[in-house]
């Protein structure tokens, strides 16, 4: 079983300790015990902690919630948000929906992918950045838009805006 280095607060002090994936998921599941329809919130918790929901996590969740692995896999694979391997150190989620397209989104997408040297939907070879499509961030009058490491960026309308994103993900 994979070990994941985790910081756990204990007795008021912060100490570095090792927690297995199974133990982590057991702890997260315990916090959700009694909550109805807990699977989706639990999967969000796991992805937040581990950066992914992989096969091992699926098996642990199934055991915790008394579901079959097939059921859990079915849910995990249904939703676009869950990934089975971690994203790059930086995550750029670029909007592809109609409103952003109407403001030249497709051309900007191509330029952004070229500048970041990563194809849409992929993680760059050095693990520095992942470029993913999203369909609408609700910023539809000021597109094209993206979330860069969770922060909204609007009016990605040319080279200057692309360079700012490139600078963020280079860090």
């Amino acid at each position: 079983m994979t070990l994941s280095a985790r910081r756990v607060k204990s007795a008021g002090m912060s100490i570095e300790t090792e927690e297995t994936t199974g133990a982590l998921i057991a702890r997260l599941a315990a916090a959700r015990r009694g909550q109805r329809g807990a699977l989706l919130p639990l999967l969000h918790d796991i992805q937040h902690e581990l950066g992914r929901v992989d096969r091992e996590a699926v098996a642990a969740v199934a055991a915790e919630l008394n579901l079959s692995r097939a059921e859990v896999h079915g849910v995990v694979s249904f939703y676009h948000d869950f990934r089975d391997r971690p994203a790059g150190r930086h995550l750029v989620q670029y909007c592809r929906a109609e409103s952003c397209q109407s403001r030249g989104g497709a051309a900007i997408e191509a330029a952004l992918a070229e500048r970041l040297a990563v194809a849409m939907g992929e993680t760059r070879g050095d693990g520095q950045v992942t470029l993913e499509p999203v369909y609408c961030l609700g910023l539809c009058a000021i597109g094209p838009n993206a979330l860069v490491d969770g922060a909204p960026v609007a009016r990605i309308d040319g080279e200057a805006a692309i360079e700012r994103i490139a600078a963020t993900v280079a860090a």
Binding site: E98, S99, C136, G138, C140
Partner: peptide
């Protein structure tokens, strides 16, 4: 609110 061009719910 997944429709592109809508953001009233969010606002």
């Amino acid at each position: 609110e997944g429709d592109s061009g809508t953001f009233a719910d969010r606002m």
